[in-house]
């Protein structure tokens, strides 16, 4: 595989599209939103994910931040994909995404991963996996923080 083919597996057209035209970029005005700040301390990428959870469902998700094409397109795709999902489903999807990043076979029958599948190529670039998982880590933290409050331990 030539080096530009290799690059093309990382920078698929759909990723570039999300990078150029990020979906759900902006701030939720509603005061009752979860806000999670997450950064990648090794490189300086940062993201703030905002989610509105109603009746156990993610009603709204938006993000602001700065970073590379992989981290921002991943945030864009993720916010698109998790909107309307139950909290549990979103966490399951995050699990699937983590596995995808490790290059493992994933069961994609449960969810319509849509554009997210374009990020599969990142698994071949170990140095970039953290870029792709930044938004997902923020989502996981936001949703499990809520759970922690209910726990006694």
């Amino acid at each position: 595989m030539s080096s530009s083919d290799q690059l093309d597996t990382l920078y698929r057209q759909v990723i570039m599209d999300h990078y150029k035209n990020p979906r759900n970029k902006g701030e939720l005005q509603d005061g009752d939103t979860l806000k999670i700040n997450m950064n990648n301390p090794t490189c300086g990428d940062r993201i703030q994910l905002q989610m509105k959870v109603e009746d156990g469902k993610i009603a709204e998700a938006k993000f602001i931040g700065e970073g590379c094409s992989i981290s921002l397109s991943s945030a864009s795709m993720m916010t698109q994909a998790i909107k309307g999902l139950d909290v549990d489903e979103a966490l399951q999807m995050s699990d699937i995404f983590s596995k995808m990043m490790l290059g493992e076979e994933v069961d994609d029958s449960k969810f319509d991963l849509g554009d997210i599948e374009a990020l599969q190529g990142v698994s071949k670039f170990p140095a970039r996996i953290k870029c792709a998982t930044l938004a997902w880590k923020a989502m996981e933290q936001g949703l499990s923080d809520g759970e922690d409050e209910d726990d006694d331990d």
Partner: peptide
């Protein structure tokens, strides 16, 4: 071109450069 993306493209050509904040966040 974000520095990460730049470093990845350069690496695909065999060129190793550093991308990030270089342990100097106040300077960034």
């Amino acid at each position: 071109v974000h520095p990460h993306d730049l470093a990845t493209v350069l690496d695909s050509k065999g060129v190793a450069v550093r991308a990030g904040h270089h342990c100097a966040q106040p300077l960034m």
